[in-house]
């Protein structure tokens, strides 16, 4: 029985900001050891879904279970990579310090991060290829580097489930490769990753499962089953336009991929 418990089970989740529903009656199941993409147009409630799972927004209805138990009991098992635009990168601190923040929850009150935390942080920085940036002031990082610092911070949380909000946003092709390799390593280690993702072209290549969202859940399941043109049309409405139906990408150059990503992301949200 225990092996069949989902990493994340969301039931009847409804979130509203001032009467306007952002998520409506959403059910999602994420099995352990999978990479899941959360996909949908701007304003579909993708970020809100992650935040609701993390207990960061007030829910009007619904239930979230992490490995079969409420989130409040399972916090240590969940790592979080917020959108990198959500913080002020001019904050007076350096890369190593930000990564060590991932240990603060486990450290508890009054205890300072020490040698062990520093080693864990350096190890995580090495995994994301940022070791040489450890003492760099965070305002001097590029977008891709900021993203990798946040990934490293989540890695030191040593979680079993990772929730990532647009981990590929604004990173170059090389960094994107590095990040996806990292996610695959996490999966190989039995971890579960749920990531908000914008680039429809790369969904079949990068992810096992997909959640299609547009306030309501459109579909949720293995990419091969639910990542269909019809479901995409349902999620994106007419806005998908003449975009070609998604095919398994064959890695034919990241440049064209990035270009397509731009096209699909044109209706920019008001962030």
């Amino acid at each position: 029985m225990n092996t069949s418990v989902n990493a994340i089970t969301v039931t009847d989740l409804t979130v509203a900001y001032r009467e306007k529903p952002v998520l409506w009656d959403v059910d999602v199941e994420v099995p352990v050891g999978t990479l899941t993409a959360v996909v949908g147009p701007n304003g579909a409630g993708k970020t809100t879904l992650l935040k609701a799972i993390l207990g960061l927004v007030q829910t009007a209805a619904g239930q979230v279970l992490i490995l079969g138990r409420p989130y409040a009991e399972q916090r240590r098992l969940v790592g979080y990579v917020p959108q990198r635009g959500s913080v002020d990168w001019d904050f007076p601190t350096n890369v190593l310090d930000v990564v060590m923040m991932g240990r603060y929850g486990a450290l508890g009150w009054l205890r300072r991060p020490g040698k062990k935390e520093k080693e864990q942080a350096l190890e995580a920085l090495e995994k994301v290829g940022m070791l040489s940036f450890a003492s760099r002031q965070i305002s001097q990082l590029s977008g891709g580097q900021q993203q990798r610092v946040f990934l490293a911070r989540a890695l030191v949380q040593d979680a079993r489930i990772y929730l990532m909000d647009e981990p590929f946003q604004g990173v170059d092709a090389v960094t994107e490769r590095a990040i996806i390799t990292l996610l695959q390593e996490l999966r190989a280690a039995g971890k579960t990753v749920v990531a908000v993702h914008h680039d429809l072209q790369t969904v079949p290549e990068y992810f096992d499962r997909v959640v299609l969202l547009n306030v309501r859940k459109i579909a949720d399941g293995p990419v091969a089953d639910v990542f269909t043109e019809e479901n995409l049309r349902l999620a994106y409405g007419g806005r998908l336009g003449a975009a070609p139906p998604p095919e398994p990408a064959n890695g034919n150059g990241a440049a064209s991929r990035a270009q397509k990503q731009e096209v699909l992301r044109l209706p920019v949200d008001g962030r």
Binding site: L56, P82, T93, Y104, G105
Partner: peptide, 22 residues
């Protein structure tokens, strides 16, 4: 001084702090 790391974290990234249960 006592809450040094907590105050630093909520000043830098309040939501991340909340997600960890602070």
């Amino acid at each position: 001084v006592l809450f040094w790391k907590e105050f630093k974290l909520i000043s830098f990234d309040r939501e991340f702090a909340a997600s960890m249960g602070l």
